[in-house]
Amino acid sequence: MSSASVKWGEAGVLSLSGVLDYRTGPTLRKEGKTLIAAEKAPTLVLDCSAVEKSSSVGLSLLLAFMRDASATGKTVEVRAMPQDMREIAEVYGLGELLAGR
């Protein structure tokens, strides 16, 4: 059974961990939305260093959190995407959108 979590690390850094797939995605989406809405910091960092495995659901989560942040006027940066997640992002044409933000 896959497990995953989304929680605050240091200030303004939202850490995604575990397996991001169809089983874990719906809950992570809801939890992340609530956490981002309650955060006051002007910058949001999405830290992927603890992601074990990601399908396209993980990429959609990053996009969804970016939309949440932008709706509340925050700037966003994606940090430490694992290599395989980065490769999947390239196939779906998201390399530029998610890298260096």
Binding site: L61, A64, Y92
Partner: peptide, 20 residues
């Protein structure tokens, strides 16, 4: 049919697959 994903995430994923 197979997932509980929201419409918002389904839209992301469909657009990604079509982009590919």
């Amino acid at each position: 049919v197979h997932t509980q994903l929201s419409d918002e995430m389904i839209r992301d994923i469909v657009l990604m697959k079509l982009q590919a």
